[in-house]
């Protein structure tokens, strides 16, 4: 038995004798354990915390039935498990009427289904690009997307460096206007 365990048992024995400070120390020390037990069974954090409080009340009610010779953790865990199961049952009976929405940032299981906004934006961009003239599209692709130096872009496209600069600039202007971005 570890030192901490023996400590808890001693605190409970003192609490049975009326030592409020020992009782306070015990319950505060046990809180993380009770929370872990409740959260293992109950997903909803608020509901789990309610189960922890139910467990605290039951521990308080049954404190005279604790036998100090026995380890207190299994005693507390068993009580907390029972309260968590009670909560779950009540939740189950209520289940048809309520759906917690906190955990549903993603609404659908299909991977593409939650990317609607991205897809609309992509479609708008494609439509905007389609409005560009052929030289503007070429200039944009080489200079911005492939990020080539102007001389190489000029060699590949057969457009002069000056023409590429103008075409790229105009293409960006068209896209900004089309997508509603302020100059």
């Amino acid at each position: 038995m570890s030192r901490t365990e023996g400590e808890w048992e001693a605190w409970m024995a003192a609490a049975q004798a009326g030592d409020a400070a020992a009782y306070d120390r015990l319950l505060r020390a046990a809180l993380p354990l009770l929370r872990a037990v409740a959260r293992r069974r109950i997903v909803n954090p608020a509901e789990a915390e309610d189960a922890v409080q139910d467990a605290l009340l039951t521990i308080h009610t049954l404190r005279h039935s604790y036998e100090p010779a026995r380890p207190i953790r299994p005693w507390m865990v068993a009580i907390c498990e029972r309260r968590a199961i009670d909560r779950l049952r009540r939740q189950g009976r209520r289940g048809g009427r309520e759906t917690p929405i906190d955990d549903f940032g993603e609404t659908l299981a299909a991977p593409g289904a939650n990317k609607g906004e991205e897809r609309v934006a992509a479609a708008e961009l494609r439509a905007a690009v389609a409005e560009l003239s052929e030289p503007q599209r070429t200039a944009l692709r080489l200079a911005k997307l492939e990020d080539l130096p102007l001389t190489e872009a000029s060699a590949r496209s057969g457009m002069s460096v000056g023409a590429l600069k103008v075409a790229t600039h105009r293409a960006m202007k068209v896209l900004r206007r089309r997508l509603g971005v302020e100059e």
């Binding site: 004798a17 009326g18 409020a20 009782y23 306070d24 039935s65």
Partner: peptide, 15 residues
Amino acid sequence: LIGELTAGLRPVRRM
């Protein structure tokens, strides 16, 4: 809740 439970603690007869 712990504060409330411990505040009025009375000794109990061990079962």
